[in-house]
Amino acid sequence: MIPHFSGALNSDEYRVLIELSRNAMAIFVQGELKYANPVALQVFAQFPNLLEKISSLAVPTEEVVRLSLPENGQNQEHVLECQTTELNWQGAPAALANFHDVSEYYQVQSIKSEIREQKRVDRIKDEFVSTVSHEIRTPLSIIRETTSQILDGLHGEITSAQKNFLSKTLRNIDRLTKIINDLLDISKIESGKIEIRREKVDLVSLVRDSLVQFTPQIQKKGLQVLNSFSHPHIEISIDKDKITQVFINLLSNSLKFTEQGHIGVGLKEWDNFVECSVMDTGVGVASEDLSKLFNKFIQIGRTDGPGQKGTGLGLAICKGLIELHGGKIWVQSERGQGTQMIFTLPKT
C-alpha cells in the first residue's frame, strides 16, 4: 500500500529537503545558473567542465543525457547522467537539471561485459583447438599408416636410403602428433575441462614403469640411474595417467639435456603428502631463465641442428596437472650444475 501524507509542507521544510537531498539539482534560466543545491555545488567543484556542459543542454527534453568528464586533477573519466525538466522560475521559463555520478555502475557493467567477452573468447578458442586437433588426427593417421606400411615392406621392397628418409617422415609425424596432443592438453587445463580421476596407486611402481621406456636412451648415452625412495611402496590417491604423464615429461626433459652422469627420481613420503623429484646432472638452467620455465611456449636450451625438439608446453602441462592434484612444482638448478624438478602431491 502506498502511504498517504496529509498537510502541505511549508517553504522551510521544502528547503531542508532540497538542501539535504543526495540528488544534485540546478536551475538554469537561458543557460545561466540561478540555483544549485549543496550536492550540485560539490559536483560542479569535482568536474570543472560540468557547469558549462549542463548549461549548454539547450531545451529541456526529459531525456537522460550521459556526459563523460575527467575529474578535477585526476585522469579517470567519470560518467554522469543528467535529466532536464521544464519549469517556471521567478516568472521566467527555466530548466531544472537533475544529475548524478553513475561511474561505479558503469565500471561494474563494463567489467561484467569484459568477463563475458573473455569467457566467450575462451570457449571459442577451446572449441577451435579441440576441433582442429581432432580434424588433423584423421589425415595424420592415414599419412602415418601409409608411411609405416611402405617402411614395413607391405607394398614391395624398399632401398635402405628410402627407408632412412621414410623413417624421418614417421618421426616427424609423431612429433606433429605430440604437438597436437600438448595443445589439446594445455587448452583443456586452461579451460578447467580436465578431470582428475583418483585411484589408489603405488607411486614407486608408477615411477619404475615410467622409467622403463627410457631404458634404451639411457643406455645409449651411458647414463646411470640413481633413484631414492623413502619407502619400498608409497601408496597415494592420484590420477595415474596424468601423474605418469608428468614423470615421463620431466624424465624426457632430463634425458634431453644430460650427456653424462646420471638421472634419477626421488620419492619422500611425509605425513600428508609425497615429495617427488626428478634430477639430472645435465646442462642446468641459467638463473635468469628459472622464472620463465613454466610459461607456455618457452623453450630454454633448445638446440639447433639434430636432436629432439619439444613443443614448449611440457612444463606448463606438468604444472597444470600437479596443481589440479593440489600440489606444487618448483625447480632448483644452476647453469652447468644439473637440474632438480621438485613437486608435491597431497596423499588424498
Partner: peptide
C-alpha cells in the same frame, strides 16, 4: 577414433577398448 575425449561416454555404455588416431600398427 580421432577424438580422445570420448572414453567416458563409451565406458558408460560398457565399451572399454579405445584407441586414438594416429595409432601405431
Amino acid at each position: 577414433t580421432a577424438k580422445n575425449t570420448l572414453h567416458e561416454l563409451f565406458e558408460a555404455e560398457g565399451f572399454y577398448d579405445y584407441l586414438v588416431k594416429p595409432f601405431e600398427a
